[in-house]
Each structure stands twice: as structure tokens, then as C-alpha cells.
């Protein structure tokens, strides 16, 4: 059984303006997204800023309420569950954020921060919580004296370890990692990536791993989904996606990565223009519209749901991009 089953999920924000606060536009942050996640599996989510990957992550764990579609987590339909219905499930799904400096309360000691999830869930006595916190500190590679110190006393990489300790405190089944290493130095990134991989192996967690760099996502994932303007345009096994990209947008993302090898210098097929806005996106295939592809008009008439082109490899079937 899948741990997570997301079907046709959409989240649209109304943008209001004018004197009467009428709806002037609609932001389709997430627009008809479907995927599943197995226990212990990592699904990578990649795309440019504004493509909706963070919103999708937050909606999946119900920090946001979807406009349409279904989220089945561990057999439970949580699409429209209330806060009190969600509370027991919060133990099972946690998030790691991009900027640990902003997601850790600066006035709390690291000990308080790591014990907070136990306190919220009413678990353990004071002494037990203290012991658990020390175990967690050791597990994420921080020394015991971190317990009474404050977040600002730590470097970015260490703060991210604190964030991870907090997120795994309740042994969740699902961890949403939202750009967990983008703010870190190169030599520290690999440490944090390794820590996440080790924890996943030990605890059997599933990850939804969100990042804008395809090399990091590919390294961390079993499968990768490529998002463009609120929609998944391609989804496949990590190796398969990198070796046989089918959608023009996936190819463009791969092509943009600067490889650390001067022998691989090549003329790039540059994407023109900026990352488009999800506010009133073009109908049909949004990437075909950005490329002004001659076959783009055909996508207006089509059903653009993903099709399986080879086992486990799903692509949006627009004629302009595949």
C-alpha cells in the first residue's frame, strides 16, 4: 500500500484587487497533480522558482488546504481534515525547511526546540524528553553541549541538523524536505545529504525531496517529478529521467546544469525568457507557450494528463514538448 496517494490535487489562490476586493486573477499554484509515494521511497520534486513545488509540499502535509483533489495518507483521506483530526497525524509527517535560521525560534535553546514536538504531543516526562533530545542530538551529529545553547550560536549546517533533529523526533513516516541544502556551503551540503540518506535507511521514512537543482534531486531520489507552472510534466525513475528525458522542459533543466568538467563544455540550448508567473497561466501546455512552439495550439485541445511512455516513465503528452 502506498504511504501517500495524491490525486488531481489543485490549490488555487484568488488574487483580489480594487475597491470591492473582487477577484481579479487566479494563481494556479498547484494544478491537477497526481503521484504516489511508497514507504521508504524518495520522490524528488524539481522545477524553477514559482513552479509550485513548495506549495505542493505544504499542501500534501495539510499546512494548506487544497482547492480540489484528494490526499490519502496512510489510508486516511486528509484532503479536508480539520486541525483536530490532523493533530495525531502530525506525528507522522514533518517538514525540513530551506532556511533553518528562520524556522527555529531564536529565543529557545536547542534543547527546548528539539523537545517541543514531544511537548506538543504530550509525550514523556521532563526527564525522558531530555534523554530523547540528547539521543537525537547525537544522532544528527551534534555534541551534547548543544542542548543548552541557542540557534544563533551554530553555523548554517549545524542549524540544519537541529531542524532535522526536530523533524525526526516523533519518528515520522513522511518527511517533506524543502530545499534542505540550498542555503548551505558546498562542503556542508554533502554532510547534510548523507545524514538524510542514513536516517532514511535507519527509520524507513519516505521523503518528498524538493529542490531546484536537478543534480541534488537526482542524487537523493528513487523517482523524480519535474514541475512546471503547477503541473507535473514528467515523472520517472531518477536514472531513467536523467538518461532519457522526454519532455522539452526536463531537457532544458538538465542542459542548464553547469557540470564540473571543462571537457563537457558545449553550446547550450538556452531557455528564453523568465520563469513565467502562475497567475493566469496560459491554457494548454504552458511550456510550449513559453517556447512559442508552432505545435503549441494543438495542446489546447488535448487532455494533458500524464501518459506512461515506458514502465514507470510518465510524460505530459503535448505535441510541442515531447
Amino acid at each position: 500500500m502506498s504511504l501517500l496517494e495524491v490525486t488531481d490535487l489543485s490549490l488555487h489562490f484568488a488574487l483580489r484587487g480594487g475597491l470591492l476586493r473582487r477577484q481579479v486573477a487566479k494563481c494556479r499554484a498547484v494544478d491537477g497533480v497526481s503521484f504516489t509515494l511508497q514507504p521508504g521511497e524518495t520522490l524528488g520534486l524539481v522545477g524553477e522558482s514559482g513552479c509550485g513545488k513548495t506549495t505542493l509540499g505544504k499542501t500534501v502535509v495539510r499546512l494548506l488546504e487544497p482547492t480540489a483533489g484528494r490526499i490519502i495518507f496512510d489510508g486516511c483521506d486528509i484532503s479536508h481534515a480539520s486541525a483536530s483530526q490532523l493533530r495525531p497525524l502530525r506525528r507522522e509527517m514533518q517538514m525540513v525547511f530551506q532556511d533553518p535560521a528562520e524556522s527555529l525560534n531564536p529565543r529557545h535553546t536547542v534543547g527546548d526546540l528539539i523537545e517541543e514536538p514531544f511537548v506538543v504531543q504530550g509525550l514523556g516526562s521532563g526527564a525522558q524528553r531530555r534523554e530523547w533530545a540528547h539521543e537525537l542530538l547525537g544522532r544528527v551529529g551534534l555534541s551534547a553541549d548543544a542542548y543548552q545553547r541557542f540557534p544563533f550560536e551554530f553555523s548554517g549546517g549545524q542549524r540544519q541538523r537541529i531542524g532535522i533533529a526536530r523533524a525526526i523526533a516523533l519518528k515520522p513516516k513522511l518527511l517533506i524536505c524543502d530545499e534542505p541544502v540550498s542555503a548551505l556551503d558546498v562542503s556542508v551540503q554533502s554532510q547534510v545529504l548523507n545524514l538524510l540518506l542514513e536516517l532514511q535507511r535507519e527509520m524507513g521514512m519516505s521523503f518528498l525531496f524538493i529542490a531546484h537543482g536537478l543534480n541534488v534531486v537526482k542524487h537523493m531520489s528513487d523517482r523524480v517529478a519535474v514541475m512546471y507552472l503547477g503541473r507535473i510534466v514528467e515523472m520517472a525513475g531518477a536514472e531513467e529521467l536523467y538518461r532519457h528525458p522526454r519532455h522539452a522542459y526536463t531537457k532544458a533543466l538538465l542542459d542548464a546544469i553547469p557540470e564540473a568538467d571543462p571537457a563537457l563544455r558545449r553550446p547550450r540550448r538556452l531557455l528564453q525568457g523568465d520563469v513565467p508567473s502562475p497567475i493566469n497561466p496560459p491554457p494548454g501546455c504552458a511550456f510550449g507557450a513559453r517556447m512559442k512552439h508552432p505545435l503549441y495550439p494543438q495542446s489546447l485541445e488535448m487532455d494533458l494528463s500524464l501518459r506512461e511512455v515506458s514502465p514507470g516513465h510518465w510524460v505530459q503528452p503535448c505535441p510541442c514538448c515531447t
Partner: peptide, 8 residues
């Protein structure tokens, strides 16, 4: 994918 990196 999913192999440990030689971290510093």
C-alpha cells in the same frame, strides 16, 4: 542515486 557522498 542515494549513495553516500564523500563529505568533508
Amino acid at each position: 542515486p542515494k549513495t553516500l557522498l564523500p563529505a568533508i
